[in-house]
Write a protein that binds this DNA or RNA. Structure first.
Lengths: 146, 146
DNA sequence: TGGGATTAAATCGCACGCGATCTATTACCT
DNA sequence: AGGTAATAGATCGCGTGCGATTTAATCCCA
């Protein structure tokens, strides 16, 4: 009895793994133009929506730990987009605030998503994309709940 | 006119980004048990299906370049799972062959997918998973075609 | 109130992933 | 045949991701 021959294309995880890489590549040109990496862009999107959060709270949104976020945020700080300062109430926590430059970047980044929609539109209708997004998030949450 | 407030949850790319991380975490215990990382496991799955391929051909399946694959394959070689040797016909190419140990690992890895089906089943029916997989692959291919 | 648990970040090491570049081999073309 | 272009991998540097550990601050509770 030999093991059955599995194709990578049968794995959902592989579709997601490769789709993630494809998104990364697709975003790259637009993100290069504003000097952000893909994870940095996601962090900035979160901060544009809600500023002054702790590293932990930001990590909860991004599903990342401080061991990933701290260096990333230090780079955003070095780029002049955010500040990192200890919370006076609880000095274990570090709060991340946008600088004026960080807020200003939001306008320049406004066209970033548009650089992708064209390619997506050729593969699925907008409402299908939305449903797909929610189904994928469902899978993610089920896995994370384990 | 300020830019509209976007939530990360509205981005398909974010759902895929975080789902990829969730799969990575979900696979980790089973993969640790057989001494593979997630990308190494994907490479082995490809090799179990078709052996003796070139680095380039393997990269085409995995959507990876030699700058990622070469170090990964060297680690698999160091682990005794594959051999890497120049093609005698065309010495620019390197062919990757499974060792006996590499082939044997396939049996031990047979239970790896099962370790996550349970979690997936609680989020979607098997036929929905299959459809989802194909839709995600469609998105990926549309992005890569740009 | 004192001191051990808990918590939040930071740090370190390792494995991707990729842009840019380099090297070696083969293809091509007159 | 000879020289240039094209191709396949390898190498290097940098930015994630994450397990494991460390440091510092706060909590808790007898």
């Amino acid at each position: 009895m030999s093991a059955p021959s599995l194709s990578l294309d049968e794995f959902v995880c592989f579709a997601i793994y490769t789709a993630n890489g494809a998104f990364n590549r697709a975003y790259k040109p637009a993100l290069n133009a504003i000097g952000l990496t893909y994870p940095q862009y996601l962090a900035m999107v979160a901060l544009w929506a809600k500023d002054g959060v702790t590293v932990g709270a930001l990590g909860e949104q991004l599903f990342l730990e401080s061991n990933t976020l701290t260096p990333l945020l230090k780079r955003l700080e070095a780029a002049g987009l955010v500040t990192r300062q200890r919370d006076a109430e609880d000095e274990r926590q570090v709060r991340v605030h946008l600088t004026d430059e960080g807020r200003a970047l939001r306008l320049k980044a406004a066209s970033v998503p548009e650089s992708i929609v064209g390619a997506l539109g050729s593969a699925a209708a907008p409402e299908d994309i939305g449903r797909l997004r929610d189904e994928i998030a469902r899978l993610r949450d089920a896995l994370n709940a384990r």
